[in-house]
C-alpha cells in the first residue's frame, strides 16, 4: 500500500537559531489515526505546520498523495491545503462571524476569490455545511456568533470547518489542550468517529498520554525535534514515556503521566 503522506528527513531551524526539527521521517497510511506526543517545545506544532506548509521546512521532503508539497507553486499549494484539514488548539475561529460562516470557510479553497469574498457559497455547500454541523451536534447553533460558544462547541466548529474541506488527511494541533477533561473526551470522540467514518487519516498532537493510548492506532513520540518512538500504543512502555517527557527534574510530571497511563489501561 502506498502511504498518503510521506515525511522524509524534515529539518526546521528558525531564524533565531532554534532547532525545532532535526530530521524527522515517517509515513502515514490511509485510515491511520496517529497521535504525536511530546512535551511542549518538542517540535510537534512545527511538524504539523510543515506538512501543510504553514511553516516552510528548512530541509527535507514531504510528499502528500504523490506531490512534493515543498516544491509546488501557490496555486497547487492551495489545492493541497484544501485536502488537508487542520484543527487548532485555540480553535482559530473568526469570532465575529456565525458558526455556519466559519464552517463554510472550509470551502474557500474550492472557490474563486470573487465568490469567496462575497459569500457566494453554493446551495449544495451550504446544506453540506449544515449536515456536517448536525454530525457534530451543533445544528441548532448555526446562526450563533462564534464568540458566543463554549470551548467544546468552538472546537466542534473547528472540526466541522476542517471537514467541510472534504479532506483526506486531518491535522490536529493539540485539539483538546484548552479544554476540560470531560469536554476533551467528547471532542476526541467526535474527531475519532468522524475520521473513522469518512476514512480520513489523522495526525493528532496530544499532550495527554491517556488520550493517545485510548484513540490512536499508532503513536509517535518526539523529543527535541527527533522521533524517539514510533509504534503501536501497547509498545509504549513507562520507560519510553520517561524518555519522551522527563529530564530528571520533572519527577512530579513523570509520576502523573504514569498514573494516567495506568488508569487508561
Amino acid at each position: 500500500m502506498k502511504p498518503i503522506l510521506s515525511v522524509k528527513d524534515v529539518k526546521k531551524i528558525y531564524g533565531n537559531g532554534t532547532y525545532a526539527l532535526r530530521g524527522v521521517s515517517f509515513d502515514i497510511y490511509e485510515g491511520e489515526f496517529v497521535a504525536i506526543i511530546g512535551s511542549s517545545g518538542s517540535g510537534k506544532s512545527t511538524l504539523l505546520r510543515c506538512i501543510n506548509q504553514l511553516i516552510k521546512p528548512t530541509q527535507g521532503s514531504i510528499v502528500f498523495k504523490g506531490t512534493a508539497v515543498e516544491k509546488v507553486n501557490k496555486c497547487e499549494l492551495r489545492k493541497i491545503r484544501r485536502e488537508i484539514g487542520m484543527i487548532f488548539q485555540h480553535y482559530n475561529l473568526i469570532d465575529r462571524l456565525t458558526v455556519i460562516q466559519n464552517v463554510l470557510h472550509g470551502r474557500l479553497g474550492y472557490m474563486s476569490d470573487f465568490h469567496g469574498i462575497f459569500d457566494l457559497y453554493s446551495k449544495e455547500d451550504r446544506w453540506n455545511a449544515y449536515r456536517i454541523l448536525e454530525r457534530v451536534g451543533l445544528e441548532k447553533e448555526i446562526h450563533k456568533r462564534a464568540d458566543q460558544l463554549s470551548g467544546g462547541q468552538k472546537q466542534r466548529v473547528g472540526i466541522a470547518r476542517a471537514l467541510a474541506q472534504n479532506p483526506s488527511l486531518m491535522l490536529a494541533d493539540e485539539p483538546i489542550a484548552s479544554l476540560d477533561p470531560v469536554t476533551s473526551g467528547a471532542v476526541m470522540d467526535y474527531l475519532y468517529r468522524i475520521c473513522r467514518e469518512d476514512k480520513i487519516s489523522a495526525i493528532v498532537s496530544l499532550h495527554q498520554v491517556d488520550f493517545a493510548l485510548k484513540y490512536a492506532t499508532r503513536i509517535i513520540g518526539i523529543k527535541h525535534g527527533l522521533i524517539v518512538f514510533d509504534g503501536k500504543p501497547k509498545e509504549l512502555t513507562d520507560s519510553i514515556i520517561d524518555q519522551i517527557y522527563v529530564q530528571g527534574k520533572d519527577e512530579f510530571a513523570k509520576n502523573e503521566l504514569k498514573l494516567q497511563r495506568a488508569i487508561a489501561i
Partner: peptide, 11 residues
C-alpha cells in the same frame, strides 16, 4: 436534497 436557501446570518 433540500432546495431552500440556507442563510448565513439570522438577520
Amino acid at each position: 436534497m433540500q432546495l431552500e436557501y440556507l442563510p448565513l446570518r439570522k438577520e
